[in-house]
C-alpha cells in the first residue's frame, strides 16, 4: 500500500514499508537532502523536521504515523522566526562543518515560534537535543538571541 506524505506543501505517494523512518523517505525517495542522518535513534537532532508545527526527530518517526500530517523540512521552512534565524546564522557565521545545522535551525525556529525572547537557560533546554560535534554552541546561543532581536524589529 503506498503511503502518502505531504512535505513542504507537496504530496508524494511512496511505495515504502510502513516502518520506513520519515528521514529516509524524505532523503532517498522525495530527494530533499537538507535533513541529515546522524544517529538513527533520536540522540543528535540532525534529522529534525516539523510535523504539524512541532519539531520532531524524523529518524525515529515511521512514515505510517505521519500520513496526512503537514511536514516541513529545512528546504521549506518559512515565516518570521525562520527568516530571523537564518539571517542571524549568516550574520554570526555559525556553521563550521555545517552538517548538524539544518537540525539546529529547525529547533531554533521551533523555540522562537513559542518564545520570542528566550533566556540562555531556555535556549539550553530547547537546543539540548541537537548535537554539534564542531561545538558551535557559543554562536548558536548568540544567534538565537540575535534572531529574537531581529523578530522584534
Amino acid at each position: 500500500m503506498p503511503v502518502s506524505l505531504t512535505v513542504n506543501g507537496k504530496t508524494h505517494s511512496l511505495d515504502l514499508d510502513d516502518d520506513t523512518p520519515l528521514l529516509w523517505a524524505i532523503r532517498d525517495e522525495i530527494g530533499l537532502t537538507g535533513t541529515k542522518f546522524g544517529c538513527g535513534i533520536a540522540q543528535c537532532g540532525a534529522c529534525t523536521v516539523f510535523i504539524d508545527g512541532s519539531a520532531t526527530r524524523s529518524c525515529v518517526t515511521p512514515i505510517a504515523a505521519v500520513e496526512g500530517a503537514e511536514i516541513v523540512t529545512i528546504e521549506g521552512v518559512s515565516g518570521k522566526p525562520a527568516e530571523a534565524v537564518q539571517a542571524a546564522w549568516n550574520a554570526l557565521d555559525v556553521p563550521q562543518c555545517g552538517y548538524c545545522q539544518s537540525g539546529q535551525i529547525m529547533s531554533a525556529v521551533a523555540l522562537l515560534s513559542e518564545n520570542g525572547k528566550p533566556t540562555d537557560d531556555d535556549i539550553d533546554q530547547a537546543m539540548n537535543g541537537n548535537l554539534c560535534r564542531c561545538a558551535t554552541y557559543v554562536r548558536i546561543r548568540a544567534a538565537i538571541h540575535d534572531a529574537a532581536k531581529r523578530m522584534e524589529g
Binding site: T33, G34, T35, V94, G98
Partner: peptide, 15 residues
C-alpha cells in the same frame, strides 16, 4: 560556505 549550510543546500557525500 555559511549560506548553503543554513538552508539545506550544502551537498555532502551522503547527499
Amino acid at each position: 560556505d555559511t549560506k548553503p549550510k543554513t538552508n539545506g543546500e550544502a551537498v555532502f557525500t551522503i547527499d
